[in-house]
Design a protein around this nucleic acid. Structure first.
Ligand SMILES: [Zn+2]
Ligand SMILES: [Zn+2]
Ligand SMILES: [Zn+2]
Ligand SMILES: [Zn+2]
Lengths: 156, 156
DNA sequence: ACATGGGTGTTACTTTATAACACTCCGCCG
DNA sequence: CGGCGGAGTGTTATAAAGTAACACCCATGT
């Protein structure tokens, strides 16, 4: 997944879909928010808010404050364009914005990649387990740490 | 679950099991670590490290440093006596230490209770989804936010 | 023109977590 | 006995992550 694909494509795609979705919803994808989204998508690895902030400062010359980034991220998460990885305090672009899904991630400890999956089996199992206990699900979080395929095959 | 049971029992039980497990493993459950475990178990709600720190200071009069608590928590997590809830930056006592399990939680947004479950279906679904993608699972995290049964029945 | 509201900038601050280093206790070996 | 070594703890300082309060700008609608 890492170096083996044309990632500029991923970024362009993500931005295009974001434009379309926000237009459709009447949400305002401002220049700043769009730029933050682009920076989140700079790789498939989750990035911390402060890393994005640094990018913003260095690449754009503007010394932004943390709040600037957090506010943009908040918007992007609300719109389902970005997911927050709780176990890393970091953010990653959503692979399928627009679709209803809850965000399930396979996070590689070696390369840091976070592959988003939307496995119906996992979702169903969680719903069943919750229902059995009378628990009403609002926001499931599934973050599996481990080793991705390519990191198993090419150990460091 | 909340006010409807003899929680002193939960605490005593947890400490007894911890004593036994650590003895069995040759791990040193020192006075400090045991005290922190007791404080984590003061409820079924996840507690932050700094909340525990405050308890330590107020109840025991010792003004401890954050590291003191973090080190104790690290030990307790390693021994599987306590779980960390990533989405809350908080810690909660393990319901079944000793057993091999990964920690799945139903966290109530209203009362804050975190019910630990060890649902085989969820575990199996995650294993299957990972296997399908060649991903090697090391540490699954499942934290479901929502409303517990009693909070649905007695809305605030 | 003016009020309104969302987005952004700025400053200061809180909460969460870790680094570096000294000290103590205790079993063990010489 | 005496000193060694390693685990646990104490102390101080610092890093990383996240939020509050308030002012300003600017597009939109009246
Ligand atoms: Zn890509
Ligand atoms: Zn997604
Ligand atoms: Zn209890
Ligand atoms: Zn457990």
């Amino acid at each position: 997944m890492s170096a083996l694909h044309d990632h500029t494509h991923c970024i362009a795609d993500a931005l295009t879909r974001a434009d379309a979705l926000c237009a459709e919803r009447g949400a305002r994808l401002t220049a700043l928010r769009r730029r933050v989204l682009e920076l989140v998508w700079s790789s498939h690895r989750p990035r911390g808010a402060y890393a994005i902030l640094e990018d913003l400062s260095q690449q754009d010359g503007k010394a932004a404050a943390p709040l600037t980034v957090y506010r943009a991220l908040e918007f992007l998460v609300e719109q389902g364009l970005v997911h927050r990885i709780e176990s890393l305090n970091a953010y990653v672009g959503c692979a399928a914005p627009g679709d209803v899904h809850s965000g399930q991630f396979l996070v590689c400890e070696a390369c840091g990649d976070a592959a988003e999956i939307d496995d119906p089996g996992v979702g169903a199992a969680i719903d069943a387990a919750a229902a059995e206990r009378g628990f009403r699900v609002q926001r499931p979080t599934v973050e599996v740490r481990g080793l991705c395929k390519s990191c198993q095959e090419n150990p460091r």
